[in-house]
Amino acid sequence: MVRKRTFDREGHAHFVTFSCDRRHRLLDHDRAKQVVLGVLNSQLSRQDGRCVGFVVVPDHVHAIVWFPRPDQISHFMTQWKQRRSVQIRRLVRCCLLGYAGTIDLTQPVWQAGSNEFNLFTERKTEEKLISMHLNPVRAGLVERPCDWPWSSARSYETGRSVGVPVAWPC
C-alpha cells in the first residue's frame, strides 16, 4: 500500500478530512456541529493556527488549516479528534437520549486516521475550498453553499461571522 506523506515543515496549508465511524450521522444535530467548531476554534488558538475554511456535514468534516510553525498538523489532528470525541459522547449521552438509543456509544466516534494533504499552491487551496463548500449542496442539504450555517462559505460570500475566524495563510 502506498502511504501518502504529509510535509509539515514548509508552511503550506493542509486540507484535512475525517469521517464519523461507519459514517454514522453523529453530526446531524446542531449541538454536535457546535462542538466540532468550538474545539476547532480553541485548538487553532492554542497552536496559533489559522482556518482557511471548513464544512461540517452530518457524517464528516473538512477543513483547511495553516500553522506558522513547523510540525503542528499531527498534534492538531490528534487533539481535535480526541477533544471532540469526548464532548460529542457526553452530548449524546446527556442531551440527545433518543439518538443515543440508536447507536452503540462504546464504538469509536471517528473512523481511524484522517485524510490530510498539503496544499502547495494558492490555486489548489482555492480549488479545495470551493469543492468542500459545495459538499452540503451535493448532499442536498441546501441549494447554495452560503446557506449552510456549518461552513465558512457564508464568511467568504457575505463577510458575516461563522463562529470560527477565517483567514488566508500568510
Rank of each mutant, 00 (worst) to 15 (best):
E126M: 11
T125I: 10
R138W: 06
N115R: 13
E126C: 07
F120V: 13
K128A: 04
R138F: 06
P136D: 04
N118D: 15
V137M: 05
T121I: 08
R123Q: 15
E143A: 14
R144M: 11
W148A: 00
G113S: 09
L129W: 03
I130A: 13
N135K: 07
T125S: 11
N115Q: 12
A139H: 07
E126F: 08
V142R: 00
E126H: 10
R123H: 12
V137F: 02
K128N: 03
P145N: 10
T125F: 01
R123L: 12
E122I: 10
L119H: 06
D147I: 03
R138C: 03
E127N: 10
T121R: 06
P145R: 02
E116L: 05
W148N: 00
F117I: 05
F120M: 09
L129T: 04
V137S: 01
T121K: 07
T125M: 15
E122W: 10
I130V: 14
G113W: 13
P145Y: 10
P136V: 03
P136I: 01
H133M: 08
E143H: 04
L119R: 05
V142F: 01
R138H: 12
A139W: 02
D147G: 03
D147R: 04
R144Y: 08
E116P: 00
E143F: 02
S131E: 12
L141E: 02
P145W: 08
L129D: 03
S114T: 06
M132V: 04
T121N: 06
M132F: 12
N118E: 13
I130M: 09
E116I: 11
L134M: 15
N115E: 08
A139F: 04
V137N: 03
E143L: 09
L129Y: 02
W148H: 03
W148P: 00
N118M: 08
P145A: 09
N135G: 07
R123I: 11
E122P: 05
S114Q: 13
R123C: 07
H133Y: 10
